[in-house]
Design a protein around this nucleic acid. Structure first.
Lengths: 250, 250
DNA sequence: CGTAGTATTGAAACGGATCAATATCTGTGG
DNA sequence: CCACAGATATTGATCCGTTTCAATACTACG
């Protein structure tokens, strides 16, 4: 582990006790006020999950797991950021998702991870062994339900991405991407400065354009006064309303 | 209802007794051989659902529900085909999904349908009132689980669409679309003749290209010997292997 | 402080969007 | 059952934006 990663990990570790753990966000579905069931984890469930999870710290660029490996655990992002991607036959990498604190990842198919998960910044995650998780879920239907609810979150995200990809203008896609980033950046402090931990080329892969087009689009957003970059990995949103209007302008 | 629709509906009605009903396909997830739980509906559950469902017959072009309406029921497609779409502020319609037998639709958010569902062909669907469904699901956790499993299906579909939209070549997207259509066309008879119930313009909206581009791409697929059209709404796949290779060629 | 990876910017070419004209289908009423 | 009309689809020509190729600038890390 790099010194930087170690430092970040140490800082993160301090928060462990007060951190509520993987608070899997609930979500209404299937209509009507209450929907079917929709509450957050109970403190007890939270503790049960914490009891069977270990904290994994990974330095920038390193892997949580790789495509095709046998899946033995799932992860919940705690600090930092990560990406998942698939390597195509052509050798290109296609970004599947970006992961931020509270995001669940490592769901597998037929016992093997379907993509590679890699840290974008020094990151720490809860690692929960399937060996421990599955019996727990089998005993606790409500908890299992919470995990499924978490899946519905993936639906929404996919669908937002479909909407984004339906747009043909590069600048609009990027605006949408930035708004999505901001919305997921829950930390209340400095709401208008959004960290952009991924590379331009990762963004390009995610929004379905070439690296150069993304670069040109960011330049235009800057020139038109929507945003400014503070270093390459932080955007300050200057005109939220106008940016949101552009993002929504479908 | 038009005479044609009535005839189709009558023909469909004959099959009612022998039809197993909305057999919500199960799906493994969360790793390991068995995953968490993953079986089909039991005959008893199936019967319970049938007991509270009515069959709705709709003629071509008519609506199951419209965007914004209060949602009182969910639907399971039984025969025919349908589409769901959203009307954008600009007035354009963006296709959200195409629906074939066994597909569940009409999930709502905050008590209102989020899109419009319209029949592409004369279609019949099971209609299940939420009023009846919700108590049933509350009593039967396993059944509730099956409904959630059904949602994971939506994830996969969204993700396939994301992959499709990531491609920039029109002919490749169309090839992918056709393969998707074929895969969902479960009827074993005449596997290589795939019904294409939607209009070119619906396809265009789904694959994210203009109507003209879709038309030109189909022409090219025909000229290159991948497919032939038998009327506008049926494709015969001439060279499955080559078409699949083109579809997978990412 | 230098170097390798990352990002920006420029010029040219390709492909899809758009506009427009024509052809074909589908469902309607005669 | 046929013919007709409106909707749907195909084909052509031009325009515009993205991709690609290429050169240069930046930045992060050792």
């Amino acid at each position: 582990m790099t010194p930087a990663a170690a430092a970040a990990a140490a800082a993160a570790a301090q928060k462990t006790d007060s951190n509520p753990g993987p608070a899997l966000a609930a979500r209404r579905f299937l209509a009507k006020e209450e929907g079917l069931v929709a509450q957050l984890l109970t403190p007890r469930q939270r503790q049960q999950l914490l009891d069977i999870s270990t904290i994994v710290k990974v330095s920038k660029g390193h892997y949580f797991y790789k495509e095709g490996q046998e899946s033995k655990a799932i992860f919940v992002c705690r600090t930092g950021a990560a990406k998942t991607y698939r390597t195509l036959p052509s050798g290109a990498k296609r970004i599947k998702s970006f992961l931020f604190p509270r995001d669940l990842f490592g769901l597998a198919e037929a016992g093997h991870y379907m993509n590679t998960a890699r840290a974008l910044t020094p990151a720490s995650c809860y690692r929960i062994e399937l060996e421990d998780l599955i019996p727990l879920l089998q005993r606790d239907a409500a908890l299992e339900f919470q995990f499924l609810i978490k899946l519905t979150h993936e639906i929404r995200e996919s669908q937002r991405r479909v909407i984004m990809l339906a747009r043909k203008d590069a600048i609009g896609r990027l605006a949408m991407f930035l708004v999505m980033l901001r919305d997921r950046h829950v930390e209340l402090k400095s709401r208008d400065v959004v960290p952009v931990p991924m590379s331009r080329s990762d963004i390009a892969s995610y929004v379905g354009h070439s690296l150069e087009t993304v670069s040109r689009a960011t330049t235009r957003l800057v020139k038109q006064g929507f945003i400014v970059f503070e270093g390459r990995h932080n955007v300050r949103i200057l005109d939220t309303i106008r940016l949101e209007r552009m993002a929504a302008n479908v």
